[in-house]
């Protein structure tokens, strides 16, 4: 029982966009799919949902292919940045159409959410602002009966109040009916605590994949005088550095050695997800994650 991405590679005009990705999405889990612009997140999501074809590799849902398969495709929903709805169609009609194809669509909840977000369901999709297009697509995503919901940029154009509403609705519907959500966003701080698992994509590869507590347990900031810090982090996986006056901070991803005493002058703290992400994916740093 899981959605599996195996050795998925995507090449376009001789450029590698995804390089042999292996990933598993378990049921009933909230994932964060993080990556900088151009890292290949949307491409990966488009391949998973069979909107485009991978150059190589397979994607399966409970061991059944997702390529050209109604049974598996109907169990996932991708809310993408690209709008696939006809601009002239009214939102009400789009909801009805979605309900026809997915069956069991939670129409009542959709209407309730539309009310909370002040979304006029009689409007045409093309007449909506960026924020309200996002809101409409979010509402559909939260109401379809699919087991795997992929949200690509779910808060694009949303103000702080609407984002708050979305996070609450997400938790509400997730508690009510646990299913897998894969959230791809740049606002990492806002969702960090919502995630159970995290996948970080950088330079077309997966650099981190695992439970958020486990990942963060291996992410450290080592602060102190430069020489002491350098001595301590020698041969460790340093993913970034900061300097402020005479104080140096090294960011380390990986287990700290048990046999190396921590100097009194040096402080060891944990990194948060956003800081870890920024350091892991900084193009100027040569980052190698274990």
């Amino acid at each position: 029982m899981s959605l599996q991405v195996k050795a998925v590679t995507q090449q376009f005009h001789g450029q590698t966009i995804l390089d042999k990705l292996d990933l598993t999405f378990e049921p009933h889990t909230i994932y964060g799919l993080l990556g900088r612009n151009g890292a290949g997140k949307s491409t990966l999501l488009n391949i998973i949902s069979n909107r485009i074809f991978a150059s190589d590799g397979t994607v399966t849902l409970d061991d059944e292919t997702l390529v050209d398969n109604d049974a598996t495709l109907g169990r996932l929903y991708l809310m993408s940045e690209v709008n696939l709805y006809n601009e002239r169609t009214k939102l009400n009609k789009l909801l009805t159409t979605t309900a026809q194809f997915y069956g069991d669509f939670d129409q009542a909840y959709a209407v309730k959410l539309a009310g909370q977000f002040d979304l006029d369901l009689n409007a045409r999709f093309g007449k909506l602002s960026t924020g309200y297009r996002t809101i409409f697509k979010l509402i559909v995503a939260l109401c379809v009966p699919a087991d795997y919901i992929f949200l690509d940029e779910p808060v694009l154009g949303l103000d702080a109040n609407h984002r708050e509403l979305f996070y609450q609705a997400l938790i509400d519907t997730y508690t009510e009916r646990p299913r897998t959500f894969v959230i791809s966003t740049h606002l990492i701080e806002e969702i960090a605590n919502l995630l159970e698992n995290v996948v970080i994509l950088d330079q077309h590869k997966i650099v981190v994949s695992g439970g958020v507590p486990d990942v963060l347990a291996k992410a450290y900031t080592i602060t102190g005088p430069e020489t002491d810090v350098q001595q301590y982090t020698e041969s460790l996986n340093v993913i970034g550095t900061d300097h402020l006056g005479g104080i140096t901070a090294h960011y380390v991803y990986g287990d700290l050695p048990d046999d190396r005493p921590i100097p009194d002058t040096v402080q060891v703290e944990h990194l948060d997800l956003q800081k870890l992400f920024v350091n892991l994916t900084n193009a100027t740093e040569v980052a190698h994650a274990n």
């Binding site: 609450q168 938790i171 508690t175 995630l195 159970e196």
Partner: peptide, 15 residues
């Protein structure tokens, strides 16, 4: 409840 805390502080219910 778990849900109330979860919703208020945006923390995963499992956490």
């Amino acid at each position: 409840s778990t849900t109330e805390i979860s919703k208020e502080f945006h923390i995963n219910p499992a956490t």
